[in-house]
Design a protein around this nucleic acid. Structure first.
Lengths: 144, 144
DNA sequence: TGATAAGTATAGCTATGGCTATATTTCGTG
DNA sequence: CACGAAATATAGCCATAGCTATACTTATCA
């Protein structure tokens, strides 16, 4: 499994790697949100996506176009947005990772609300190895 | 103290907040690196900055221009780059935070190398509250 | 000292991810 | 069913952050 979900290959140094993770982050957020909206409302509409992401509707449309290009979502003009199988799998992994990071931070003594805020940025940079370490801590196999 | 070092105000939701943190991240990295180079070599040259950041020289020049605009660094044409007092203070905080995040991840059982890689992305999204929680864990006040 | 090498700046391109304004389509309802 | 409201798309703008190619300065050394 790759370190970040959308990575293809491993970049040269830590800065290049962080840049790649960042590029994937936005797509990950959109995919997760579209998954959430679909589960809640049966479909993900552009207006709802834009509202939850706190961006304007044209910005959401543009990002959705990118999701489609990347094979993560589909949509027809003036219709809702849906995840492809690949998009849905990605959404599941992103959601699980998010939950793990939040739970871990809370376990470390971070207040729920702040954990939620910080996790939003942190989660996209947590490698599989680190995620497993977090899970181990949560399971009580405390390494400290 | 602000959650992220360059923040002015608090954005609307977690996504907007993560976007702000990301905008600050690049500047933080440059400032830290310029501080490192100055300490090591007496001055920070554009070519060295570019090499360490793994970007081309013109890209480094452009980012340095932004640092100057933001009042974090100074430079004269064809000469080295130097941090302002504000830049130097920021560099110190960024460096300390980076060390804390790496040490914390290592304590959680993450291998040193991976901790270093992940920290590069994570550190920019760790709020002061979360950072304090990490420090507490490192001091042995284990909350688990 | 003056030619060349090394370092820096500038021009100009790309893509991303924001935005507002406006056109277009779909939907709901009188 | 047709009209107005709501939703979506499109056009066109901005800044950032990357790149290559090239111009210009500075520095070195024969």
């Amino acid at each position: 499994m790759p370190d970040t979900f959308l990575d293809k290959d491993t970049p040269a140094n830590r800065f290049a790697r962080a840049r790649e993770a960042q590029a994937a982050a936005l797509l990950e957020d959109y995919v997760e949100m579209i998954g959430d909206l679909t589960a809640e409302l049966g479909e993900a509409r552009v207006a709802d996506i834009a509202e939850r992401m706190n961006v304007s509707q044209p910005t959401a449309t543009k990002s959705i176009a990118r999701l489609k290009r990347e094979g993560l979502a589909t949509s027809r003009p003036y219709r809702g947005v849906f995840l492809t199988d690949e998009g849905a799998r990605l959404a599941d992994r992103v959601r699980a990772r998010h939950r793990t990071v939040v739970a871990f931070l809370v376990r470390m003594g971070v207040p729920e609300e702040i954990a939620e805020l910080d996790a939003e940025g942190i989660e996209h940079h947590v490698s599989q190895v680190t995620l497993s370490a977090f899970e181990a801590v949560l399971k009580g196999e405390d390494p400290a």
